[in-house]
Design a protein around this nucleic acid. Structure first.
Length: 137
RNA sequence: AAUGCAAGCCGUUCUAUCGCUGCAAUUUAAUUAUUGGAGAGGAAAGUCCGGGCAACGCAGAGCAUCUCGCUUCCUAACGGGAAGAGGACUGGGAUUGAACACCCAGGCUAUGGAAAGUGCCGCAGAAAGCAUACCGCCGAUGGCCUGAAAAGGCACAGGUAAGGUUGAAAACGUGAGGUAAGAGCUCACGAGUUUUGCCAGUGAUGGUAAGGCUGGUAAACCCCGGGAGUUGAAAGACCAAAUAGGCUAACGCAUGUAGGGCUGCUCGUCCGAUGUUAGUGGGUAGGUCGUUAGAGAUAAAUGGCGACAUUUAUAGUGGAUUAAUGAUAGAAUCCUUAUUUAUUGAGGAACAGAACCCGGCUUACAGGCUUGCAUUUUUU
RNA sequence: GGUUUCGUAGUUCAACGGAUAGAAUAGAAGUUUCCUAAACUUUAGAUAUGGGUUCGAUUCCCGUCGAGACCA
C-alpha cells in the first residue's frame, strides 16, 4: 500500500531529540539524512521526519512545496526500495530527511535522488549490523 | 473606439489514477472497514492599532510612565471610517502698471496651547528678543569753544531701529501726523491673533461691533484635556503511576518584632519565622478540552448626503498540532518566444499558505471584468 | 505564535538638529629600494528605503525593507 498516515511520521519529541543526539548521518545532495536504529517494535518499520530550513527558504509556500514533493516521492518508493531491504522487523528505524538545496526542482529530480538515498542507507545499515554482530562474538 | 486616472469585483477550469486531515451514517475488539460529503486568502503576510476570551492582581488614593489631540457622527472598540470646518500648496479666472487680498477647481493636511514658564535659532549680520548701536541720522537737553547778545561750531555725555549690508526669519505692513532725529508715540486703511457681546450653525467655525496683543519652534522640554492594571492560547482548565516535599486547618511558640505580599514608586493595607497532628496534592513528559456559529456571510426592502443601522429571506459550517488541504497524466483558457503566417514546437501560470477568533490599517499582486471622470480620433 | 533591539566608507566604530559626515584599517597611485616589507605623500569611497516636521534631519516623527536577541 502506498499509504502515508500518521503512524509512519515521527512525532514524539523524545525520539527526535534522541535521533539528533545519538544518530549517525550522511550527505547526499540535496539531502542530509540522519538515522538511528532502536529496539522498540512498531507497526511500521520506519518513522520519518521531513525538514526544510526556514533560513534557506523564507517563504512558507516554498517550504510547503518542497516538503510535499519529498513526501510524495517517499510515499511512492518506500514499499519496494526501503521496506524490502531492511532486514529486521522487530527494530524501528528513525529517519530524518533535511533538504539543504538552494532552489526548487521538478518532481522527477526528487524521485531520483530519494531512491539514491535509500540505496546508500541500506548499504550503511548492513555494514553497521555486521559490525554489531561481530563485536559481541 | 483607444489611452490615462480613481473606485469596486474576480483572480485559472475540467477529467482519470494514487494519496493526506476532519465530519456524518453503518460496522468493528480497535480510526478496523465501507459509503457519502467537505477541506487556504484578498491579502491567510507585516504584527502597526483596537477588541473578544483567559489567568494573575485589586479597601482605596496619589505620583510616575506610555499614548491620543479641529468638529459632529458611525462603530463592541480604535490611532479606523463617513460627512464637514480651518490651513498652506498647485492650476485657472477676475482685478491691476505688476502683484497681494478676492472667486472657482484639485489633491494634501498628527490641526489643542507660543497671552503660564524654560530652552534653542549654526554661519552671516549692528542686532536672532530686557535690542550692550558697525555705517548712518540727530545732538532738542547737559558739557566745551566763539560771541555783548541773537546765533554758530565741536561731536564729549548721550538719543535714535526711519535707511544700509546679512539671513529661512529683522521687531506687523503702507501712508500721514509728530519729532532735534526717530519710534504703534498718535491717526487712517489693512494682515494675523485673542477676549467679550450680537447674528447664523448641533458643533468646529463664519459674519459683525468694541477692546487687547504682534518673530519662529511644542514630530524641544513643558502646560491643558481624554484614555490605559499586567501578561498573552507557549494564556488557561481537566486526566493519570512512582519519588523529594509545597500548601491548608487546629494546637503550640511569638505578641504584630525580623521579614514578606499587594503592577513601577509612595502613602496605606494585609500576612507573618521554628515544632506536633490531620488533610490535600505541585513540577517534568503525554493526552483531552480551550478550538471554531461568529460584534458571521449573501440578497432584497426601508431609513440616512454618507460611514452605517433595522427588518425579512437564503445557503451552509477548514480545523492541522514535527503541523492536512497534495502528486502524476491528459484536455481547455491565457501569456511569452521561435518557425511560419492554415499552423506547429518549446517554456510558463501574479502575489502568496490558516496556527485561538474577530474589526481595521499598511504592504505585495500577472491578467481580466464593471462603473465614473478626463483627453484624443472617427461616424451621425 | 509572541516580545524586543538595531541598520553610517569594503570592515570595525565616531558624530548637541547647523559650513563640505570623522577616525582606524583594507583598496588604488606615487616617493624611497637592486626587489619586497616598513615608512612617507596623495587619492577614491558611505547615513537601508519612501514620506513628513523644521530655515536646515545621520539625529525628531510615521510607513516599508533587512538583520539579530529573548520567551518552551
Amino acid at each position: 500500500m502506498n499509504t502515508f498516515n500518521k503512524e509512519e511520521r515521527l512525532c514524539s519529541r523524545k525520539l527526535i531529540d534522541l535521533l539528533f543526539k545519538d544518530g549517525s548521518s550522511f550527505l547526499l545532495y540535496p539531502y542530509r539524512v540522519s538515522y538511528l536504529l532502536t529496539a522498540t517494535s512498531h507497526q511500521f518499520p520506519v518513522q520519518v521526519v521531513i525538514n526544510v530550513s526556514k533560513k534557506r527558504f523564507k517563504k512558507a509556500v516554498d517550504r510547503n512545496r518542497i516538503k510535499r514533493l519529498t513526501r510524495e516521492a517517499y510515499r511512492l518508493q518506500k514499499q519496494k526500495d526501503l521496506y524490502a531491504l531492511i532486514p529486521e522487523s522487530e527494530k524501528l528505524l528513525l529517519l530524518s530527511v533535511q533538504f539543504i538545496g538552494k532552489k526548487i526542482y521538478d518532481y522527477s529530480f526528487f524521485e531520483k535522488k530519494l531512491s539514491g538515498v535509500f540505496k546508500k542507507l541500506t548499504t550503511e545499515l548492513q555494514v553497521k549490523m555486521t559490525q554489531e554482530n561481530d563485536q559481541p562474538s
